[in-house]
Design a protein around this nucleic acid. Structure first.
Lengths: 350, 350
DNA sequence: AACCATGAGGAAATCGATTGCCTAGACGCT
DNA sequence: AGCGTCTAGGCAATCGATTTCCTCATGGTT
């Protein structure tokens, strides 16, 4: 063991170590020689104070390492500067980017986020909702791992709610969702642009909103260009296994496909593997486009996978911004679809 | 559009819709015909009250949909029943399971979690720390995406801190970490058990704690059984690309390897792909064991990948439990390593 | 000199729940 | 009857910060 430099102990001037016992505003006021009310005004930029007084209070606060007690503040003001985020996406694949986006939008306004993982359990969800109310959050963001519309989380709730990624079945609710049809159109147009004409679509379960929306948009885009799909849409699962299986189907039907638009990166990856194994060149013989732009998948795929990015962070940011607007009295309603973008990689490189 | 059944509006008996305007304990007290103090005691099971009075208050609370204002309560009691979780793992690959485990341990005690993503930025981290203090969290869990020990997040903090997954360089701090050496031992013993003797180890960067610890444990376990490693440990990255590259190295050295223990599932997957491509049978010619047991990787791999599971949820749960203990006055110190388990799959099936 | 406007800062109420202390009955005992 | 002892529940202080009134000075005006 090398000798570890002894950690700073008692000296810390204005480090966090000074906060050993909570410093209150009255201590700050006492040190600055003013009343607590004045101290409050000084620190919040309110009231009519001489600049030097204000400065004296601020320095006292600095010196003592004062941090206002959020509970006391919110008891008085009614605002907690906190929002709740309820997700059903235990994996975090979608909710983490959403969270990051939301943090960006809220962090600027000094707000914090309670993350609650309801794990697809309605009981748990209602329970979390209750605790969020008890904590008097200023607003709630609801999200999940599927884009299907869901029943509203509650009726006539005391705080604004914004749905992110998923949407609410109630059109009066505010939802921010990816424009999946737009994403599909981008994918198809990209494949057309690189000269492919025999395009298939392999996607997830037909009862998933995402699958059908993307499929329809893909079909319509093709039709718009006067191109017929190489095969009917193949519905299956969101997994690599299904991608591999679908590759077998495409090969055996002799459809002579030169491109496949896939409903997810995992499906695309399964296809890539199986097609390569069968002797097909990617993108030479078959070009591939995935969906989600999931880093580990698009990079792990051989060749690297072109994919549609739904800009989850952007959705999180938008949702948080709309929530803020609602909190401040100007609520938005309805579904707001945000466009994604296509990230071209080797699997469609000409 | 089918006609949507009009949502319950004014009638809602005890649904959440009743909570339109915050119900306070004095309203409950008034309805029950008691004082607020008595109401408080009734609802919290304190004081000496006639059972019927207690019941009357509870029913009044129920009827009004009363939920106590957490800010007011914590102002009085000094407890917020809230913990902060600071992570540097923007991806969420590790922090989400940790969060879920922690939620399990804390949820039973009705606590909530503030999730703060510091994104590897020390400034951001200190900023979050400050807001957590202002919110008077009862404790803090610090985590990250690497198991390397990190500098303590602060010295002499006013609340207990537990490090989960990562550990603190200060031995007086409490850390709950995966027993990676144990995981490596399990992997090696498993390979030995299925009769493999020419075992290689491919892992991440040498400057990562995880990589070296696992490598050393693997070597020692082999040595303990009197087996020499088929090759020196191959250090690289945690990626599939490195796995593929490593496969090439193993093949070209003619080391005649019959098993590879990989430092991550992604590395294993890269190896699997490249080895298969080179005509090797898995597990026939070469058996593979990964690390992390990351569902999409182990399932996407062909064949399905045997892997070491670090039980992240369990670590999150333990960390939360130790944090609770510390909050309640019996803090633990030092590093607590939790064993993982090996999940056998096709890549090592005999 | 008298008056008023303005600036600076203090005093105290307030938010909602908790809790220690106190009191009014009820009861029992001598 | 008198006294002590419980019991049930009310009263009011308290937590910490904000905010609404006030109250002094001060200085400018006529």
């Amino acid at each position: 063991m090398t000798s570890v430099p002894e950690t700073v102990q008692e000296t810390g001037e204005e480090t966090l170590s000074t906060m050993d016992r909570a410093v209150t505003i009255s201590q700050v006021a006492a040190l600055a020689g003013v009343s607590t009310g004045t101290a409050s005004k000084a620190l919040n930029g309110r009231g009519a104070l001489r600049p030097e007084t204000r400065l004296r209070v601020q320095q006292a606060a600095e010196q003592l390492g004062f941090v206002a007690n959020a509970a006391a503040r919110s008891l008085q003001t009614g605002r907690t500067y906190t929002v709740g985020m309820i997700t059903t996406d235990s994996i975090g694949r979608f909710s983490i980017p959403l969270l990051i986006g939301a943090e960006d939008a809220l962090g600027a306004g000094q707000m914090s986020i309670f993350l609650c993982d309801a794990r697809d359990d309605p009981i748990r969800e209602q329970y979390y909702l209750r605790t969020l109310f008890s904590r008097k959050v200023d607003g709630i963001i609801v999200t999940g791992r599927r884009t299907d519309a869901r029943a509203p989380i509650g009726i006539g709730l005391p705080v604004p709610v914004v749905y992110a990624f998923i949407s609410s079945t109630d059109p009066r609710d505010c939802s921010v969702v990816p424009d999946e049809a737009d994403g599909a159109r981008r994918a198809i147009r990209h494949l057309l642009a690189i000269g492919r004409r025999r395009i298939a679509h392999v996607t997830g379960p037909e009862h998933h909103h995402s699958a059908t929306v993307r499929a329809r948009a893909a079909e319509e885009t093709l039709a718009g260009e006067g191109v017929r799909p190489a095969t009917p849409t193949l519905y299956g699962e969101w997994s690599e296994a299904w991608g591999r299986q679908a590759a077998g189907i495409l090969l055996s039907t002799g459809a002579d496909v030169d491109a496949v638009f896939c409903g997810s990166d995992q499906i695309a990856r399964g296809l890539a593997e199986a097609l390569t194994k069968a002797g097909k060149q990617i993108p030479g013989d078959v070009a591939l486009v995935g969906f989600d732009n999931w880093d580990v998948m698009v990079e792990g795929c051989q060749p690297a996978l072109t994919s549609v990015d739904m800009d989850l962070e952007g959705i999180g940011r938008s949702a948080a911004e709309m929530l803020l607007a609602a909190i401040n009295g100007t609520p938005a309603h309805g579904r707001h679809a945000r466009p994604g973008r296509l990230i071209p990689r080797a699997s469609t490189a000409v």
